[in-house]
Write a protein that binds this DNA or RNA. Structure first.
Lengths: 344, 344
DNA sequence: CGATTCGATCGAATCGATTCGACTAAGCTA
DNA sequence: TAGCTTAGTCGAATCGATTCGATCGAATCG
């Protein structure tokens, strides 16, 4: 069926009666070629059904592929359900799209061979990756591939696009403290790669690899050292419901719950309603991210997700140009919602 | 800062005292190499800080890049907000992940130079693309790159993963007809690349390029030839609100509105509530997709989105193996919700 | 008119690996 | 011991373009 021999640039050049270097110039437009010659080359290409220079060969020679890798640790479906990741991706795509680059989705799971090491990328953006990707990072570094990380531990030679997770979290906790809350529960993002769900002991905590989760938790701990903590298996509404169930159905239910994402918080509100508890009268709920969920007027921290994606994109462009961009630190903005109240 | 000369496989081979062919074998594992030699090569690589074979060179020689292109017509942000696209992507990623391939996001917008033509992909999946991508498809075909299309017009040499949009839509319309509705409105997905929002005239309709939108509309037209049609600018809740506003605030408001997606339907329900209309008592609403939105118990058609993505993935794998998979046709399943009732 | 640009084109080297066919030495059988 | 297989290694060709430096004729300048 398929005709094995596809035409090459050399074949086109031969037919047009020019050298392959000239033909290349005619296609790429980077160099002086007379209009007449160019037309001859293009005509020859059309006659031979030539579809333009092979991207593979071009990227080998040029040393650039026009592809930016996006490393995501979760399953794609999980990642895409998170509006924050989507927003960041959008900002990133916007910036790198300016140079015609496209995004390669790389999911880095423990079980599979490292995709990131064999992908022809010009640069890589790590999305909320844990320390588990350190090995891959090392390969990239050796290969001289620029790396930008959003929400990740600070690594050498990696440009970080940060957020003040800890102090933002502390601020939220302080609001609760001011309202007289003493027994607060926390529902965290996954603490480890396994996404184990359940109450968190000191042991778990010291073995945790989830950077963002630990930062936000640390912020809360500064005010509520004894907070009861439940680790979710992901940033979903359903997980919030589970977390709330575990905390509310215990012997000493908390008077307030701090969720590490708005999706989790929405689940908590839902679970409270299921139990006949009124928010905020019976239970104060706090979120994180600044994303609207279920139309709830949530007390939370809004983070500039699209801007963070953009910043990552700009850092990538700068790195690609040989520059060495500094880390960028964004700040969350407190959103006064209607889900916290003084303890009864 | 960066040391210009990165080690190559040849350098590693030289240091290990073997030929580069042997070194290649040692890395790829495809061929007999003694354990001792292999160790020498690996040691040499470590000593030189060699990060493994360059993916670019490898893909040129092998003729495979391990990358599957995903062509999306919308802005990335818009596409990611659509749970159906996400589900399809997830199914697709699942299948092609089996051979270690990753997905390259290609947005094909009118204004930018065609990214798809210069991407080193082994195959391409078109996601709900209109006829506008025909040109790019042509280039791919000439290059011998397999193409699979989800929700797209039937194109020569393109494997289609279809859905019975028309008959499903007709089924929904028939439910309304049976309940006595005569004046129905339709809120469609974008009809053209420009995503123009507004009432649809016969002129617009004949110039439409949105395949899915036109199919679903045709299904409705079989029963309600005179339905008033409003084209949305995208599958979002907000767009549903706008569409409902236009239809409901007209002189002869419809007694039922058919939305071409559940997100749009959710917007319509919301807009109805804003006007003090009760669904379904005052207004029947119908969706499409089978996605839960806002917890509404919607009457709709559920389409197997993940499975469709999977089917696309399998088709890609088969094409890559030289096979010629047949088109696949999926069927929507009617979901009896609580948003339609007899006309008053 | 001779010297000098400048525009257009060509040849050849290069990007960095993979792979095919050939070759060697060792192990095995008859 | 001759003949044959096989594991291990090597050389060279190849994938398909880009790019640097050289060349050559024509146009420009003093």
């Amino acid at each position: 069926m398929t005709n094995e021999a596809r035409p090459t640039l050399a074949a086109v050049a031969a037919r047009a009666g020019v050298s392959s270097s000239t033909a290349s110039l005619a296609f790429s437009g980077s160099g002086p070629v007379s209009a007449e010659t160019k037309k001859r080359v293009l005509d020859a290409a059309a006659a031979l059904d030539y579809a333009g220079p092979d991207p593979r060969a071009r990227s080998l020679r040029r040393g650039r592929s026009g592809i930016i890798g996006v490393v995501i640790e979760d399953r794609l479906r999980d990642a895409f359900r998170d509006p924050i990741i989507i927003a960041m991706l959008d900002g990133l795509a916007d910036e790198v799209g300016a140079i015609g680059a496209s995004l390669l989705l790389i999911t880095e799971r423990a079980d599979t061979a490292s995709e990131v090491e064999s992908a022809p990328v010009d640069a890589v953006v790590l999305f909320g990756c844990s320390t588990r990707v350190t090995v891959s990072v090392d390969v990239l570094r050796r290969r001289g591939i620029p790396i930008v990380a959003i929400e990740a531990e600070h690594l050498d030679g990696v440009v970080a696009i940060d957020l003040d997770n800890r102090s933002s979290s502390r601020l939220l906790a302080s609001k609760l403290a001011a309202l007289g809350h003493r027994r607060v529960g926390v529902v965290t993002l996954p603490l480890e790669a396994s996404h184990r769900r359940g109450f968190v002991t000191a042991e778990h905590e010291s073995a945790a690899t989830g950077y963002v989760a630990m930062e936000r938790l640390a912020g809360v701990r500064e005010l509520f050292p004894d907070a009861v903590v439940w680790a979710s298996a992901g940033s979903f509404v359903d997980e919030g419901v589970l977390g709330a169930a575990a905390l509310l159905d215990s012997e000493q239910p908390p008077t307030a719950i701090i969720a590490q994402s708005d999706l989790l918080a929405a689940g908590i509100v839902r679970a409270a309603a299921d139990r006949g508890l009124h928010v905020p009268a019976d239970l104060s709920v706090i979120g994180f991210d600044g994303v609207e969920v279920d139309g709830i007027d949530l007390t939370t921290i809004r983070q500039p997700a699209v801007d963070r994606g953009r910043a990552a994109g700009r850092a990538v462009l700068e790195l690609l140009n040989g520059g060495s961009p500094a880390d960028t630190a964004f700040r969350g903005e407190f959103v006064e919602g209607a889900t916290i109240a003084a303890v009864r």
